[in-house]
Amino acid sequence: MQQKGIRRGMETPPQYKFLIVDDSVFARKNMGKVVEMIGGVVAGEATTGREAIDQYFKLKPDVVVMDVSMPEMEGLEALSKIKEQDKDARVIIVSSLGYEELVKKALSLGAKHFIAKPFQPDKAAEIIRFVLKEIK
């Protein structure tokens, strides 16, 4: 008998959990569509860096997609704090600020990739798929 979601000789790909962090509803919705496009699931959302840290350790997502400019605590500070406690955390930074110094800082703090806003959904999906490859 065939089990739900499993075809003979072929397993259903794992559904990766995402945490989307951005203070803009529009931006979160937009990134949510990209996550759905690649077959992932939005496990949670956060609107500040502080909320992102709380949600990360509560939800343990496979990937965090995080904006830089946010109230209370900015994305790079949140990235740094998450990485301090979980060096394996996979965080992708998404920002309209794309100057070299900032990109380098994000990567040096442990970000897996940097997506510049505005992004084309298929390009963002490609970057996320690339980051997900290391899980397999």
Partner: peptide
């Protein structure tokens, strides 16, 4: 409505982010 305000704020954020990137570079 709120979603319109939020979308326009994000649009302007993207413009300002791009401008700052040019200025920082």
């Amino acid at each position: 409505q709120p979603v319109v305000v939020d979308s326009i704020a994000e649009l302007i954020n993207m413009v300002m982010g791009k401008a700052l990137t040019i200025l920082n570079d």
